[in-house]
């Protein structure tokens, strides 16, 4: 089943067109890695998909429900606030810089949204949080505060926080770019685990080896467009497009 469908997405900041007609689909349980040079529009794409930015044109559907559409007059239509919020809750997001709430304990970072936004009881939310922390290998950190965590631990808490809302799809915006190489591994391990559990994920990443290993599909973006997409092995070892070749070669030359 298709869980995300993106059609002809456009986004500009002032005169700078960042997304230039992006279309792709994500099936349930699929892991999609989005790669490409800096400034190719990868992060902006994620920000449009999780409603942090409004698109200029295009259609996005989440499990069949329209999140944004564009009519024949070119007007962008978002559903009313209530319907939009329901869709938003089905989308989880993990940021490059974690963005944990520093004044909340790890436990409360994870339970606050399920209780306040999702209407769960405190006990239920805490039970889920403990299960998630165990899965992240952080059972002993429930009462810690974010400043006491390493980068890798912070990012795993951020993943647990996103999962606590039980999203249909989880977006990652360069989840390991702010981490030392040795801490990168522990975050990738968790994402691998989620992939094995058939969690639907779209991961913007610079970790090519990881993309090749975990992703079901790789999308290569450049200058606001999808240059090519397909099997990770194919794209990363034997790309058909010149620009992809140059990008992959540039990486291996480093």
């Amino acid at each position: 089943m298709e869980i995300l469908s993106v059609e002809n997405l456009y986004k500009s900041f002032d005169d700078n067109e960042v997304l230039h007609g992006i279309s792709f689909k994500v099936r349930e349980g699929e892991v999609v890695a989005v790669i490409g040079p800096s400034g190719s529009g990868k992060s902006t794409l994620l920000r449009c998909l999780n409603l942090l930015e409004k698109v200029d044109r295009g259609t996005v559907k989440v499990a069949g429900d329209t999140m944004v559409s564009t009519n024949d007059l070119g007007q962008v239509l978002y559903p009313p606030e209530g319907a939009l919020k329901k869709i938003r809750l089905r989308l989880g997001m993990v940021f490059q810089n974690f963005n944990l709430f520093p004044h909340f304990s790890v436990m409360r970072n994870i339970t606050e949204a399920p209780v306040i936004v999702g209407g769960k009881s405190q006990e239920e939310a805490e039970k889920t949080a403990l299960e998630l922390l165990e899965k992240m290998g952080l059972s002993d950190k429930a009462n810690a505060y974010p400043y006491q965590l390493s980068g890798g631990q912070s990012q795993r808490v951020a993943i647990a926080r996103a999962l606590a809302m039980d999203p249909d799809i989880l977006f990652f915006d360069e989840p390991t770019s702010a981490l030392d190489p040795e801490l990168t591994g522990e975050v990738l391990k968790v994402i691998r685990k989620l992939a094995a559990e058939q969690m639907t994920m779209v991961v913007v990443t610079h970790e090519m080896a990881f993309a090749q290993e975990v992703a079901d599909r790789v999308i290569f973006m450049d200058k606001g467009q999808i240059i090519e997409e397909g099997d990770p092995g194919e794209i990363l070892t034997n790309p058909s497009h010149e620009r992809t070749k140059a990008f992959i070669k540039g990486l291996s030359d480093r």
Binding site: L51, L52, R88, G92, M93, F95, N99, L100, F101, V117
Partner: peptide, 14 residues
């Protein structure tokens, strides 16, 4: 307060 705090709250539905 960093923009990231607002964004994290927004994606969680606050």
């Amino acid at each position: 307060i960093s923009q990231g705090q607002y964004e994290a709250a927004a994606v969680l539905g606050f």
